[in-house]
Design a protein around this nucleic acid. Sequence first.
DNA 1: CGTCAGCTATCAGAACGTTCATAGGTGGCC
DNA 2: GGCCACCTATGAACGTTCTGATAGCTGACG
Lengths: 203, 203
Amino acid sequence: MNVLIADDHELLAEAVAQSLSRNEGLSAVVATSLAGTMDELSSNEYDIVLLDLRMPGMMGLSSVDSVLKRAPGVNVVLFSGQIDRRFLDDAVKLGVKGYIPKSMPLKSLDVSLRLIYSGQTFIPHHQPQESQLNASNLTSEPLVERELFVLRLAADGMINKEIARDLGISEAQVKMIMRQVCQKLGARNRAHACVVSRERMLI
Amino acid sequence: MNVLIADDHELLAEAVAQSLSRNEGLSAVVATSLAGTMDELSSNEYDIVLLDLRMPGMMGLSSVDSVLKRAPGVNVVLFSGQIDRRFLDDAVKLGVKGYIPKSMPLKSLDVSLRLIYSGQTFIPHHQPQESQLNASNLTSEPLVERELFVLRLAADGMINKEIARDLGISEAQVKMIMRQVCQKLGARNRAHACVVSRERMLI
DNA sequence: CGTCAGCTATCAGAACGTTCATAGGTGGCC
DNA sequence: GGCCACCTATGAACGTTCTGATAGCTGACG
């Protein structure tokens, strides 16, 4: 079983790879950027990719989709400290085979990977954070590209007028998009939307 | 040399500990919460603590200070994926002995720790992200308690009126505090301030 | 043709950011 | 004590920005 660990935390990725490679019939390789991951997937055969969402070059679900398309036969598994449940569901719909939290005990990693290799989708049970957000109007709609652009600029402190100029659209449209973003994220205002999107690693 | 790795990413902490412990005269133990770290420091002798800032219970610099006070003779080293330079400087002033980025190559870890054990403060060179923020009026002033409260509530989407009611002060005062926060963080508005403070792990 | 989606324009009201003036408290100093 | 400087808290006012709603315009598509 060949595992590719795609994580820019080289220190930890290599340590995990060392530990995994001690197991019989298992070898692990490290990539530390999205570009490196793509290269590695093109040039070698892997059974499983442990994919960190915070690597350089990663842009949320669209990057996950790129990896899935690049390596159709490979089990893509998200690899992250914490992850939003709805984001994870969307990823599974795209074809992701599961999620390995970095808080998992090391001794569970080997068997988890073997389970995924056997064809199972593996998502460990996670105690839900009690939050008033998950109540009503959340439809788990993913953000489209333009919404992400607006969100990123807003998170950099730009006002609507500046965002409009940067994106070549009208300020009215920026407001409409921002409104959509808040609805999709269940946020109360732009500050909240920026924080929520960061927590879910969308931007 | 006894090393305590304090990181709630158990998977990675244990893998690094395994890797470190292969070295001659070096043993590593893992703690996965602030409380566990404090307990471990009380009951055993350590030379170095690798302290992650995002563990359960951690509250920014105040928690770092608690660890320093609990273990006066131990080299406390921050352990994080990325870190704000000014935050790091403040931590060093408190007595922290350096910083190990998780993006460091695994083979450099051993020698870095030995360097710190020898008495050196170790902060790897980090290419500065070109940013127009670091130019003028940033004085690295820490946020006081009330400013952090306002910031947390704002990051939860609350408006000034609600924040004022929650904190038992006037809306005018909330605005003044928010203004202070933006100045200290070099942020352009509240959305920016919320994002910046999250990046620096202040809230 | 009608429908739908995306962009724009406009409006009103709320919230935000800034400034000024005022009042209370503290501590130093004659 | 009396005075002053300093800091913090507050209220009011003002312009800007944001939010939400509405309506018109365009082009694509069946």
